[in-house]
Write a protein that binds this DNA or RNA. Structure first.
Length: 659
DNA sequence: CTAGGGTTAG
């Protein structure tokens, strides 16, 4: 066995502004500490036991300052006294007093007590002072599992997963056995790390340790394992761990449901929820479960399902919980029922910034930019400070509505008025806003002037705008960077090919299509959903119609002929295959969205609104066809694409052909 | 003395 680097003697700093321990002030305001003049009777008390009791009771009363004063006169503070003091510092969020207590501990020689070292690490972790937590750990000679775990927890919380894993390795080499808590922390560390990928192998290794040490039936550990795989995108692994659990509780079920939602498999999320209700009698879903289930409904635009869940939430009395409320607002907005979202919002007794953000983004995706800005201002008026997500929401709303000047002003106000520094997403919003409005040079300038290294999001936004306005030159520049940053994202290649096709540069189209054949590319197939009588039906685009889609094809063909007589021109230029016009038209008719619309026309009553959601941006041909259909079939058609809602009515779309 | 799932955006 080898020894860790020798603990250095701890030197208590002399002045209160400590050079040894880094004292970083917390951003939020601390509760005021009482400063009552010390009662001389207490100050001179000689009885140690009495003093200890007094210090503890002063802490309980929240009089930390006086407690510390008394501590300096007490030669023999007990472990319990120190514990009380440390907890009190956490409660008051007072790092400077925490440092004082620490200094006293060192002075009295009690800092080597592993129990108190654990408490100190927790304290520094709570007070956002990870460096001090680490120093305590380094100087503690007798490291119980509690001491290790406390540091693991602290490091995981600040995202230093790699450090946790390297310490975990050392711990194993030293022969210190892990316990159930250790496993939960190190599993979390595989997710909470500076490096985003490649920790899966480490997680699997820990998984093996867990099985080897007989924790395969431990609910907490196994649930954490499910969650780790979920966070790393390994749905199959998560499911197999979940399936193998001998006992499960609400948390395990919720973790697995959340796993499906997070990894864009909402159907499976809803299915598992149903299974949970049917298979388990003794446990019932709670607010956390409901949030995930609502998210699944939202992502599918499954309005009827969502309403059922809403009823379920009301019956179970989970409706006063803020996150549930916010998710309900989002669910209704994303299912195309903005007015119901607004109604839920109006009923909320208290609202936090997340509730406001839900509503703002709701108006945004429906194209009501001005309204979104108005709600943003209302939020501030109500004393709620915007978060960085508020800005993503409101800037996105400006973008959908083409409110360039307003968006610029809001962007400027971020730093000036709210001290929120733009992140990648904000820059992407601005590039999108300007680019969509055909101010491509300005959009490119935003990228040039960025204070951080431009990532895929901003280049992607620029390329998307080049697609709309057919700017080959800028598109080539953007895609060059984009291909370096995300070489496996097929969507980017398709965008560029679209642009070349629009510009009739067929050789270039061919060249890009060659690149698209690379097997490693991640292609997202176009997919649309429609809910009919509480059942979801999904459609993927087809190049050839088969027996099942025959009826839909016939209807679409008939509609197409009628529409052509009234001025519809198929946008065959977006078909990237080298085929004749007739063939291209056939391919256009096979787009998943048209299939879903046709299915909706056949399977819903004549006055009923057709609601469709799809996973990609709506193509121009589908957009134009849906406009026609809304007029000639006299139907309201609501389509949610990747970015926003299109509300088709009487031949017009709410996006104003700006999307 | 410590532990597991969820809220808003794109």
């Amino acid at each position: 066995m080898w020894v860790l680097h020798a603990p250095q003697p701890f030197q208590p700093p002399a002045a209160s502004s400590s050079p040894q321990l880094s004292c970083v002030a917390r951003s939020h305001t601390k509760p005021p500490l009482c400063s009552i003049t010390l009662n001389p009777a207490i100050a001179t008390a000689k009885d140690g036991a009495n003093n200890n009791r007094l210090i503890q009771s002063l802490c309980k009363q929240g009089n930390l300052k006086q407690a510390l004063h008394l501590l300096s006169r007490e030669p023999n503070p007990t472990q319990h006294t120190y514990e009380t003091l440390i907890l009190s510092c956490i409660r008051h969020e007072s790092l400077s007093h925490g440092l004082d207590v620490h200094r006293h501990l060192v002075h009295g020689g009690l800092d080597q007590d592993p129990f108190l070292a654990t408490k100190l690490i927790n304290m520094y972790s709570e007070l956002d002072s990870i460096d001090n937590a680490r120093k305590v750990f380094d100087r503690t000679r007798k490291r119980t599992i509690y001491v290790w775990n406390a540091l693991f927890r602290a490091l995981t919380l600040v995202g230093q997963g790699l450090e946790v894993l390297s310490l975990y390795r050392r711990m194993n080499e030293l022969g210190v056995p892990s316990d159930r808590f250790t496993y939960t922390y190190v599993l979390k560390a595989c997710v909470a790390s500076e490096c985003l990928n490649s920790l899966l192998w480490k997680g699997k290794e820990i998984h093996a340790h867990i099985l080897k040490h007989g924790y395969e039936a431990h609910v907490h550990v196994m649930t954490t394992l499910v969650d780790m795989y979920a966070m790393l995108g390994c749905v199959a692994y998560a499911a197999s761990v979940f399936d193998g659990m001998p006992t499960r509780n609400v948390v395990s079920w919720s973790a697995m449901i959340a796993c499906y939602v997070r990894n864009e498999r909402p159907f499976e999320a809803l299915e598992l929820f149903r299974e949970m209700l049917n298979k388990t009698n003794d446990l019932s879903p709670n607010s956390v479960t409901m949030v995930s289930v609502l998210q699944a409904c939202a992502s599918l635009a499954a309005l009827e399902q969502g309403k059922l869940i809403h009823g379920c939430i009301l019956r179970r009395g989970l409706d006063s919980i803020l996150p549930v409320f916010s998710t309900l607002v989002t669910m209704y907005a994303r299912c195309g029922k903005l007015e119901l979202g607004q109604r839920v919002f109006d009923q909320m007794e208290n609202r936090d910034v997340v509730s406001w953000n839900s509503l703002i983004s709701g108006y945004g995706i429906h194209g009501y930019g001005k309204k979104a800005i108005q709600i943003f201002k209302e939020m501030i008026y109500h004393g709620v400070s915007p978060s960085h997500i508020s800005f993503i929401s409101v800037l996105g709303a400006c973008s959908h509505a083409g409110l360039v000047a307003e968006g610029k002003m809001l962007f400027d106000s971020m730093v000036k008025e709210h001290r929120i520094y733009p992140r990648m997403e904000h820059y992407a919003c601005m590039v999108d806003l300007l680019g969509r409005a055909n101010q491509l040079d300005e959009a490119a300038k935003v990228i040039e002037d960025m204070r951080i290294e431009p990532g895929a999001e901003v280049w992607g936004a620029l390329l998307g705008s080049c697609r709309i306005h057919c700017n080959v030159e800028l598109a080539e520049k953007a895609s060059k960077r984009l291909f370096e940053l995300e070489p496996r994202n097929a969507g980017n290649y398709v965008l560029l090919a679209d642009i070349y096709a629009e510009a009739q540069m067929w050789d270039e189209v061919k060249r890009i299509k060659k690149l698209l054949e690379a097997p490693k590319l991640q292609k997202v197939p176009g997919c649309s959903w429609i809910e009919v009588r509480r059942k979801m039906y999904s459609f993927t685009s087809v190049d050839e119609f088969n027996v099942r889609s025959e009826q839909l094809h016939a209807l679409l063909l008939k509609l197409s002929t009628e529409m052509k007589e009234r001025g519809y021109v198929p946008q065959t230029k977006i078909v990237l295959y080298d085929l004749d016009e007739k063939e291209k038209e056939r391919i256009l008719l096979g787009h998943s969205e048209k299939l879903a619309v046709a299915f909706g026309l056949i399977n819903t009553k004549s006055g009923e609104t057709i609601r469709i959601s799809k996973n990609l941006r709506l193509c121009e041909d589908c957009h134009s066809v849906t406009k026609f259909i809304s007029k000639f079939a006299n139907r309201e058609i609501l389509v949610r694409d990747l970015n926003r809602f299109h509300h088709f009515h009487d031949g017009v779309c709410s996006c104003g052909d700006y999307w």
